[in-house]
């Protein structure tokens, strides 16, 4: 029994609080964290920068394979293996250029994924599923009881502590992949990604579009940031209380979206002319000045991947496989 049980036993407070939780869930902590990262932070965590660490020297195909292997291992093993893998990958960010800052950003992003993932699973997990993880329902701690009509929206009648723990366990299967995905983008030049897709026999037209996208993602954050600052320079929120600043910031961010889209789309024609004048798509293939090779770090990575696969097999053999199913997302 929790100390606040009187709140859900009284129908009025039960309804009010249930709707507040329904509407806002875990919004506030996530909001605070994303606020700390900011637009500049998102730009830094999606943009390639030159660096000297071993990740910069690896073949992009190796990095791609690594993230697929990590995904597979996290999917078929017990949740804490996923958690350890996540921690390992996050630590790799320390080897990057300006590593501590990137480490901080990716840690915060991962934390938001964990609590976001937990909340998208916990209220919807039926007791039958929970019993696979926590076999004795009599020991469950009820944290909140929803009004009966919440069942219509797929909610379980009660939210238990065990359901929240289960939600966190599920989210660790996603976080390993999320933190691995950005490794490739942050440590590989656009030209190398082009070579990688060419090696994988992806049609040139598609590769071109993907690379325009890869280059554009950090630019969007940068342009939005500039546009927001310009609006403040022109006097947005001048003389108003500092408390209202986040509201103006948000307003400026939303107002900045359409001009940013138009600015980028207008620039598309210039980019198209410059690509066409260099004979883009004049021939079916491309000639290469540099071919992608494998270095010692790639072979080490292959070894790590091999070990991870062995680990997944052993974990399954010794009963640490994924015995509980996903529900919800």
């Amino acid at each position: 029994m929790v100390p606040w049980n009187f709140l859900y036993e009284n129908p009025l407070s039960q309804n009010i609080i249930s709707w507040v939780i329904f509407f806002y869930g875990v919004a506030l902590p996530i909001l605070l964290i994303l606020w700390i990262i900011g637009l500049k932070g998102f730009m830094e965590i999606t943009k390639y920068e030159k660096g000297k660490g071993f990740l910069y020297k690896m073949n992009p195909i190796t990095k791609l394979m690594l993230s697929v292997v990590l995904m597979g291992v996290a999917a078929v093993t017990v949740w804490w293996i996923g958690a350890i893998l996540t921690l390992g990958i996050i630590l790799l960010y320390l080897t990057m250029n300006d590593g501590v800052r990137k480490f901080l950003y990716i840690s915060l992003l991962t934390f938001t994924s964990i609590i976001g993932g937990m909340w998208s699973v916990a209220p919807f997990t039926p007791e039958a599923t929970l019993e696979l993880v926590f076999p004795d329902p009599a020991k469950y701690t009820t944290i909140w009881v929803w009004p009966s009509y919440f069942l219509f929206m797929g909610y379980e009648p009660q939210l238990t502590l065990q359901a929240l723990i289960y939600g966190i366990q599920i989210s660790f299967r996603i976080t390993a992949v999320l933190s691995a995905a950005l490794l490739l983008v942050l440590t590989t030049t656009t030209s190398d990604i082009f070579r990688m897709f060419t090696k994988l026999k992806i049609p040139q037209a598609m590769t071109f579009s993907v690379l325009v996208g890869v280059r554009t993602v950090p630019r969007i954050f940068s342009l939005l940031d500039t546009s927001v600052k310009m609006q403040f320079m022109r006097g947005l929120g001048y003389g108003k209380s500092r408390i209202l600043y986040p509201v103006y910031y948000l307003y400026a961010g939303i107002v900045a979206i359409v001009p940013t889209i138009v600015y980028l789309f207008r620039g598309a024609k210039t980019l198209a002319i410059s690509a066409d004048t260099r004979g883009f798509r004049a021939y079916p293939g491309r000639t290469e000045m540099k071919t992608l090779g494998f270095c010692k770090y790639d072979y080490v990575a292959f070894g790590v991947m091999f070990l991870l696969i062995i680990l997944a097999v052993l974990a399954n053999v010794y009963g640490f496989g994924r015995t509980i199913p996903y529900v919800g997302y």
């Binding site: 071109f208 579009s209 969007i220 598309a268 690509a275």
Partner: peptide, 16 residues
Amino acid sequence: TVDLIYIGIGAAFAVV
């Protein structure tokens, strides 16, 4: 080419 760039920029915006 310009269509492919529109598509690339659009996809980037959708991801962001």
